[in-house]
Amino acid sequence: MTAVAENTRADAGTQTDDAPGAVASFEVTLKIRRYNPESEHGENVIWDEFTVQAHGTDRVLDALHKIKWEQDGSLTFRRSCAHGICGSDAMRINGRNRLACKTLLKDVNPDKPITVEPIKGLPVVKDLVVDMEPFFASYREIMPFLITSGNEPSRERIQSQADRDRFDDTTKCILCAACTSSCPVFWTDGQYFGPAAIVNAHRFIFDSRDEGAQQRLEILNDKEGVWRCRTTFNCTEACPRGIQVTKAIQEVKRAMITRAF
């Protein structure tokens, strides 16, 4: 977890390139962890290197696309929106979990080969694609929906802006799994609920409209729940949405302790 995010961006003011803030085009090498049980390598993992021409504003995803579209069509990864909203393309880039579409090549030291691996802790299906089912299963377990009792109001529920702000940070989650798959506790046996599930529980536990906090705290008061968090802050560092993940987990712990005593 000690990847260097070197910023090699040149001063934007001296650029001659057309795109604003761009650096001239450069060559970049990607070292990609490949796994394809159907290929000649069978169950073996191999590392492939590809070199592509990139531009100043290109992201790691652009480089992966270039490889897939121009060199090796069998390179497999997930992607959709390409600007950090859909959460498809979380991967380990230079040893750190990031979204490929939000990581500019020039920010990850393109002078050396950039390593790209699937996120850790989830079964790899093919190349950079992992099985997301365990991840979503944990998410579903914490009852990620508003729980209320009584009659529905005829208009909206009233909530002050301050109450709304209380859980704002955790509403930003896009379920990309960058946090959960950066957590060393999750890597061990994948039984830990993981940061993302706790973040989404937090989003409802601290929503003033919600009445299911007790049930969610009960669920997370598990051997595999919040108490497995070791506050290594990997999750906070990995979150592409800038959510204070570790803080959210601590807040859930605190809520449990105040409940118990």
């Binding site: 089912e133 009960e218 008061n221 598990d222 051997k223 595999e224 729940g225 108490w227 712990k253």
Partner: peptide
């Protein structure tokens, strides 16, 4: 299918971990 239905091995709820944390 690589996506065999996944289930947590067992639910282990209780205050044990809470108390040990405190």
């Amino acid at each position: 299918s690589p996506r065999d239905p996944y289930a947590r091995r067992k639910t282990t709820r209780g205050n044990y971990e809470l108390y040990s944390w405190v």
